[in-house]
């Protein structure tokens, strides 16, 4: 364990809490992409199957359970909660996210640490997480005004994987750990946030509304 990784996991947890707070307090999921949330549920389920096969860990296990529970809760709210589901921007959330699932599955089939069910699914979840934010970013571009909580949510989500990159750099030098699959996927994932980060920081500096071109 190192500070980068701890900060990264806390940032990830914070992003999910921000989203839950937004949905619960405003009773609205305007500006949130249900497709991205669906993909996250898929990411967590396919990644945390090892909850049943590997020894539990005091640190990882609670996080895995919280990530699974919160991501499923968010999708439940957006699909079935009578008030919240009315506020979902169905017609703007148009990204064909199914086109993301198949390439990730094929890639996982060929590129994985070991050709077993758990490892292929784990690789699938790593690749899928890298692109899962795309529907959300596309939805933000079509949103006229992005509310602060949504902007903060996406920022934290991008920041957590950027912190993981620092964690991997640290572990490479300190613990001689090499992990090609999450490294490359993590780089792609963080790169996808690049323009969002630029506009988010610019709007924060000029103290103006966040607006994506």
């Amino acid at each position: 364990m190192n500070a980068f990784r701890l900060l990264a996991d806390l940032t990830h947890l914070l992003s999910i809490i921000i989203l839950l707070v937004k949905i619960r307090t405003t009773k609205s999921c305007a500006g949130i992409s249900l497709k991205t949330q669906d993909l996250y549920v898929l990411v967590f389920i396919s990644r945390y199957l090892d909850l049943f096969t590997r020894p539990l860990s005091l640190y990882n296990t609670p996080f895995k359970l919280v990530f699974l529970a919160t991501s499923i809760t968010i999708v439940y709210y957006m699909r079935y909660h009578k008030v919240v589901k009315q506020t979902y921007n169905k017609d703007s959330d148009t990204f064909k996210h199914y086109f993301l699932i198949l390439p990730c599955a094929v890639l996982a089939f060929f590129i994985n640490p070991k050709f077993t069910f758990i490892e292929v699914l784990w690789s699938f979840s790593i690749y899928l997480e890298a692109v899962a934010i795309l529907p959300q970013l596309v939805l933000l571009q079509s949103s006229s005004n992005i509310d602060n909580l949504t902007g903060n949510y996406v920022f934290m989500l991008g920041a957590y994987r950027a912190l993981y990159l620092l964690n991997w750099i640290y572990r490479f030098f300190a613990e001689d750990v090499v992990r090609w699959i999450p490294w490359i996927a993590g780089l792609v994932q963080t790169a996808l946030y690049a323009d969002f980060f630029y506009y988010y920081i610019k709007s924060w500096r000029n103290n103006e509304r966040l607006k994506l071109p």
Partner: peptide
């Protein structure tokens, strides 16, 4: 490659 199998991260 060995390390990839040790999923000790979230």
């Amino acid at each position: 490659k060995e390390d990839d199998k040790k999923h000790d991260e979230l």
